[in-house]
Every structure is written in C-alpha cells, then in structure tokens.
Amino acid sequence: MTEPAKFLLVDDLPENLLALEALLARDGLVLHTARSGEDALELMLANEYALALLDVQMPGMDGFELAEFMRANERSRHIPIIFVTAGSGDAARRFRGYEAGAVDFIQKPIEADILRSKADVFLDLFLQRRQITVQRDELATLSAALQAADRQKNRFLAVLAHELRNPLAVLTAGLNILERASDPAAIETVQASMRQTLSHVTRLVDDLLDINRIEQGKIALRRESLALADVLPAALAVAGPSIEAAGHTLTVEAPDETVMLDVDPARFVQIVGNIVGNAARYTPKGGRIDVVAARAGDRLHITISDNGVGIPAEHQSLIFDMFEQADHDLGIVGDGLGIGLSLVKQLAELHGGEICLVRSAPGEGSTFRVELPVAD
C-alpha cells in the first residue's frame, strides 16, 4: 500500500496550526505539526514531506533560520518551503526568504483558496516524482530480470548444444562402425549403445515438451487409484541402469500396510525416478542411496537420501529453478538440460503435493522429500 503524502506545518501558535490543518485537510494527505524549529528538524529526520509551511516569526529559531538548516541537510534540502508571514512584504524580507530556499510567500490573514491552490501544485509534483521513482525502480527490476533471462537463455542454448552434440557424435560413430563391422557381437554392442543414446535424446525432448505443456496449462494428469507397492518399483527401475553402472547400493523401505495413491502412474514414475536418478548421477561410484516411503496422516512421504557430492549452501535455493544444474569440483556433472527438478516440482504440485530439499552439504550427500496426498 502506498504511503500517503505528508505536509509539515510549523508555527509557534497552536491556533494557527489548527487553522492550517482545517484548510489543508483531505483524504490521502497527512499533516504533521511542529511548534518550533527544533521540533520540525526532528520530524524531518524521520519523514519525507511534500511541502513545508513555515511561520517566519517564531521565538528562538525563526522560519528563515529553519529554512537554512533544511537546505544544509541532504534529507530535507529538496522539500519545497512556503513562508507564512504576518509581517511586511518588503523586498529585503522576501529576498532573505528566497535566499534561504523558499519557493513562495503567503501573507496572513490567509486566503483559503490561494493556500489550497498552491498546496495542490506541490502535492501533485510530489506524487508525480514518487510515481516516476516507482516506475524507474520497476524498469530497473525488469531490466535486471531480462538480463538474467538472457543469460539463462544463453546458458540453456549452450547446454542444449552440448547435450545434443555428444549423442549425435555417438550415433555418427556407431553408424560408421556398423558400415564396416562384420562381427555379430560387435554389431550388437554398437546397436545397444545407439539405443541407449537415442533413449537419452528422447528423454531430453520429452522433458522439454513436458515443461512447455505445464507452462501453457496443457498437461493433463491421468489419475488412477493405485497401491504404492505397484508403482514404486517401476519408478526405481528407471534409475536402475545408472545405479548398476555406478555400483551403488540401493535400499528401499516401504510401509507394510497398503497405501493407496490417486496419481498419474507415468508421472509418479517420472517424479521419483528423476530424483533417484539424480542421486545416482551425483554420487561417486560405490555410493549408497536410500529410499524411504512412509505415511504421515493423509500424505505419503518419499524420502531419497544419498552420500554423494552434496549441494553448496549458496546453490540450494536455486535447484528447483529452470536450467539450474550442479557442477562440482569432483568432476561430476549431471547430464540433461537442468530442468529435471523444476519439472518434478511442477508435476508434484499438479498432484497436490510438493518436493523439498531436506538437507544437503558438500561431501555429505543430499536428502529430498516428495509429499503426495493419499487416496481416500
């Protein structure tokens, strides 16, 4: 909510302050009063004013002296000043006032229409400056966001080029070998490698399409009432080749009782398989991955822990952002486009669930938890 504009009224006589307040009062305007120059300076330290109306003839610090103090202070030097005076309007007096920083004089007795008209001018100017400041800040924020998006786009294109170039090189090499090979065993090995490479490329494309569908609201869940015991093995099987290739130990703990879920089975496999697959990729060979499923009220908690490389604290808030991908001193870099966890987060939320990073530390591994609602 926008803070209301403020005027500062300074006069040593309470009745004069009451009269000024009555003339200037309106919605959206706050009037602060001070009965001395010292009190006025104190108020200026804590507030921003659109206009200051100063009585010239005050005991102690008079209006001219107060104006000079205001102009000497960075916080108050830009406040417009109108002097209110019952004294003579001779040229010398006015010159001193303008020299002290005044923009105008109003003679007592005050003509209400003139006072309001002049006050309106400075109020409008103040509100316009405030609006310009807000727009400037918004433009700066937008510019920073566009620059970040441009950097993200360039990073994504570089990663995409890398991720497509490598499998294309494998496929090209495979075709060259097949053209010359005559040994059936060698041909079978090359074909298996090419199938795996094509599967990797297909996964990249599928992830991109899923992200696009979710952002456009075009993805539809095909929910089924399924037992956890029927879908969890399929999700773990997705990461099976990565776990086996790295020699990891996988332990799975699930409830003894039947837990029913209302989920899209393909998307459930995608959610859990992606996190377990990440654990396999970011854990040095011979590591350990633990999957624990437990019911907590009307939610199913699936906790995936590893003893891998972990995530630095400064990166943990970014891991669910699009195209974010960890890169470690150990030389372990995740394959893919860095959209896996972002996709998992969105798929979990479509199911009415969520995913969070429970803990992570470099060299100690990571623990993620997926929460999904249990079927009634």
Score class of each variant (00 low, 15 high):
Phe122Glu: 01
Arg151Ser: 04
Arg203Phe: 02
Ile177Asn: 01
Leu178Trp: 04
Ala173Tyr: 14
Leu139Lys: 11
Asn212Val: 14
Val103His: 01
Arg96Asp: 02
Arg151Pro: 01
Ala186Pro: 00
Asp124Trp: 07
Arg151Thr: 05
Glu163Thr: 09
Val103Gln: 05
Arg155Cys: 08
Glu99Gly: 08
Ala144Leu: 11
Gly217Ile: 14
Ala161Phe: 09
Arg94Ile: 14
Leu208Ile: 08
Asp120Arg: 08
Ile110Tyr: 04
Val134Met: 08
Ala112Pro: 05
Gly174Trp: 00
Thr141Trp: 07
Gln128Cys: 06
Asn154Ile: 03
Ala169Thr: 10
Asp113Ala: 09
Met194Asn: 08
Leu168Gln: 10
Ala220Phe: 15
Ala158Ile: 03
Val159Arg: 05
Arg180Thr: 13
Leu171Met: 08
Asn166Thr: 12
Thr133Gln: 15
Ile211Cys: 13
Gly97Pro: 00
Val170Cys: 06
Leu115Arg: 01
Val201Ile: 10
Ala158Asp: 15
Ala148Glu: 13
Ile219Thr: 13
Asp207Thr: 11
Gln128Ser: 04
Gln196Phe: 09
Gln131Asp: 13
Arg94Ser: 09
Arg96Ile: 00
Asp207Lys: 11
Arg130Cys: 03
Leu115Trp: 04
Arg94Gln: 14
Ile177Gly: 00
Ala100Leu: 02
Leu198Gly: 03
Ala192Val: 03
Pro184Asp: 11
Ile214Met: 12
Glu163Ser: 07
Val170Asp: 06
Ser117Ala: 12
Ile110Arg: 06
Ala192Cys: 14
Val205Trp: 07
Leu127Thr: 12
Ala102Gln: 03
Phe105Trp: 08
Ser193Tyr: 00
Arg130Ala: 03
Leu221Met: 15
Ala181Gly: 05
Leu209Met: 15
Leu175Glu: 10
Arg94Asn: 11
Thr202Leu: 10
Gln152Ala: 03
Arg116Tyr: 05
Asn154Met: 09
Asp124Gln: 12
Ala112Tyr: 06
Asp137Lys: 09
Leu175Gly: 09
Ile177Ser: 03
Asn154Gly: 10
Leu157Arg: 09
Leu146Met: 11
Ser143His: 09
Asp137Trp: 07
Val190Tyr: 00
Val159Gln: 07
Asp104Ile: 00
Leu208Arg: 02
Asp206Phe: 12
Phe156Ile: 04
Leu123Cys: 02
Ile214Tyr: 05
Leu127His: 06
Ile177Glu: 00
Asp183Asn: 14
Arg116Asp: 05
Ala186Arg: 07
Glu215Ile: 12
Val121Ser: 06
Gln147Met: 08
Asp210Val: 07
Ile132His: 10
Asp207Tyr: 06
Pro184Cys: 14
Asp210Ala: 15
Lys153Ala: 04
Thr202Gln: 13
Asp120Phe: 05
Ile211Ser: 07
Glu99Cys: 06
Phe95Trp: 14
Gln128Arg: 15
Gly217Tyr: 07
Ala144Met: 07
Glu215Gly: 06
Glu111Thr: 06
Ser199Gly: 12
Ser143Asn: 12
Ser182Phe: 05
Lys108Ser: 08
Leu164Tyr: 04
Ser117Arg: 11
Leu221Cys: 08
Val205Met: 08
Pro109Phe: 03
Phe105Asn: 01
Leu123Asn: 01
Gly101Ile: 02
Thr172Pro: 02
Ile211Asn: 08
Ile110Asp: 04
Leu168Thr: 13
Leu171Thr: 03
Ile177Met: 01
Thr172Tyr: 09
Ser193Gln: 02
Glu111Ala: 05
Arg136Asp: 10
Ala158Leu: 13
Ile219Met: 15
Ala181Arg: 00
Pro184Gly: 14
Gly217Asn: 12
Thr172Arg: 15
